[in-house]
Amino acid sequence: MRWNTLAAAALFAPSNVLALLRFPCGQLVIDRLDPLVTPGMAPSPHLHQIVGGNSFNATMVPEKDMPQESTCTSCQFSEDFSNYWTAILYFKAKNGTYKRVPQIQNVGFEGVKGGMTVYYMQDGLYNFQQTSKVTAFQPGFRMFIGDVNARTREEVEKFRQLTFTCLQTLSTRDPQTLDFPKQPCPAGIMTALRFPTCWDGKNLDSPDHMAHMAYPESGTFETGGPCPASHPVRMPQLFYEVIWDTKQFNNKADWPDDGSQPFVWSFGDGTGYANHGDYVFGWQDDSLQRAMDSPCYQNCPTLKSQNNAAMNACTMKRRVNEDIDGWVKVLPGGHVANYRK
């Protein structure tokens, strides 16, 4: 398994490697807020799970809110007050009711509550050298990946690397699919979200939160290809892994009679193609650039780390008061499962 190989290599990483940051972030809050796509709207149209700095709010004015306004972070590195968020996964029972699927951490990060694993890389995940130079994201930077309206393979393929893995164990990483797994997954379902890595060098954001970023000319980040002339600045590969603990929903007797898979995103997508993620930069001072320029592998001596208790203690009260733990007849925001546009 390539992932096990990566974990082993981390123990014997050569001294000349540059940064591959891989770290856990506990759950900051689960709420209907989305300051990137629907700023100022409370509640936002659908439910999200958010990690990172506790200055997260409905507006997130770049000049004010981050990182100066945060007093804690739910991520391992205490200088990282960025916010990372995705939609929530739900199970739809045969009787039509919905139940939120909880999140668990990756192997090695046990004890951190919920949340996700975050990566920043100079080179592909399975390249142990990590020798490329990258320019860290800047204060005020933000981006989005995915399409909440996508319901076909063709629509999601333009994003190149938004995938699902049916986990046989928590170390499973392949095969990866663009849609929801069609069978029960023994250890859960993992979603992987890899953001574009080429910046136009000018704009910290764009109207769709994507146009200021692009993919390398030769395909995905792992190809090592050059950035296009329109987006010449090579930035870190930002990558989320979210493990959804679907084990309690693996009884096929509870699945639809027609054999279709029962999971839906919190905005109703039952195909999985509308997988998406949001990012707002909030590293203190030049801490991320220092880390990207340092010989560190997963952990980094130039950064301050905090323990599980500190990560778990950084939480926020939900602004929108609604049932997010029980069985519900409709998804928060009034959504129902849909499989076509």
Rank of each mutant, 00 (worst) to 15 (best):
P262W: 14
W283C: 10
S294M: 05
N312A: 07
D258R: 11
T302S: 14
N251T: 11
N299E: 12
G259R: 04
A310N: 08
T271L: 07
P256N: 06
Q306H: 12
C300N: 15
S260W: 03
G272D: 08
Q289M: 13
C300I: 01
D258N: 15
L288K: 13
G268P: 03
D293H: 05
W255F: 07
D293Y: 00
L288A: 10
M292W: 09
M311T: 07
N275G: 03
Y297Q: 09
D257C: 04
N308V: 05
D254G: 01
T302F: 01
N308S: 06
N307E: 13
P262Q: 13
S294G: 11
A310R: 02
C296E: 06
A274L: 12
C296L: 04
M311F: 12
S260E: 09
F281G: 07
D269E: 02
D254Y: 00
N307F: 01
N251H: 06
Y297E: 06
F267S: 00
N308K: 08
G268V: 01
W255A: 04
G268Y: 01
H276S: 13
K252C: 06
R290E: 05
S266P: 02
K304R: 07
C296V: 04
W255L: 11
S260F: 04
H276G: 08
L303F: 07
T302E: 14
D254K: 00
G272C: 04
A310I: 01
S294T: 14
D285T: 09
Q298C: 02
S287C: 05
L303W: 07
D285C: 00
D293M: 04
